[in-house]
Structure formats: structure tokens, C-alpha cells
């Protein structure tokens, strides 16, 4: 999936996460993580983000994550929404998302 511009999804409410996805002019994935759960779940959060981007076939992006103790499924949902917004896609390929 091609990232066209910056896309954000989520909120800063408790149990939620706000994620912004934008193109990384360099190669590779940059994750900027700010989380109150960093000490106990920082690695897990990075893993979920990397994994979700891989499934969405997104590369070379910068992901800013402002986490308020979101669960894995919430992180996946917010990241997916941010990616589609950043890619400007409104026709969702549900078969592939399964």
C-alpha cells in the first residue's frame, strides 16, 4: 500500500492510542513510541505495529504512537485506520484484511 500523506487515527483517551503514519523519506520503518506502559509492554507494542504494517504491506514509514495503555487489538485497529487514511483509500479490501 502506498502512503501518500500523513494519516492519524485514535484518541488520547485512557485505553486508546493515537497513531500517525507518514512517509519515511529514507528506507525502513521508524517507530516513535510514547507510552505509559513502555516499561512493561514497549517491546510488545513495537511488535504489534511491525506485524500489522507487514500484513498491510506498508514499508518505509514513520509511525508516531501516543499510547494511553491501549490493548493490542486497539493498536491494530487504530494503526489500520491511520494507514488507510494516509493512503487515501476508502474502498477497503476486506478479503485481504481477514
Amino acid at each position: 500500500m502506498r502512503i501518500l500523506h500523513s494519516g492519524t487515527a485514535g484518541t488520547l483517551e485512557s485505553s486508546d492510542v493515537m497513531i500517525t503514519v507518514e512517509r519515511n523519506p529514507e528506507k525502513g520503518l521508524i517507530i516513535e513510541l510514547e507510552s505509559i506502559s513502555e516499561a512493561r509492554f514497549g517491546n510488545r507494542i513495537r511488535e504489534v505495529i511491525t506485524d500489522t504494517l507487514k500484513k498491510l504491506q506498508v514499508q518505509d514509514v514513520k509511525v508516531r504512537v501516543q499510547d494511553r495503555s491501549a490493548l493490542d487489538c486497539t493498536i491494530r485497529a487504530r494503526l489500520t485506520a491511520a494507514v488507510f487514511r494516509a493512503a487515501g483509500i476508502e474502498k477497503y479490501p476486506w478479503e485481504e484484511l481477514e
Partner: peptide, 10 residues
């Protein structure tokens, strides 16, 4: 099951 297993504190 909900949270995952927390990492040890540093």
C-alpha cells in the same frame, strides 16, 4: 489474556 504478559521492570 487481555493484556499479554508484562516484561520485567528494569
Amino acid at each position: 489474556k487481555v493484556t499479554g504478559i508484562p516484561e520485567p521492570l528494569p
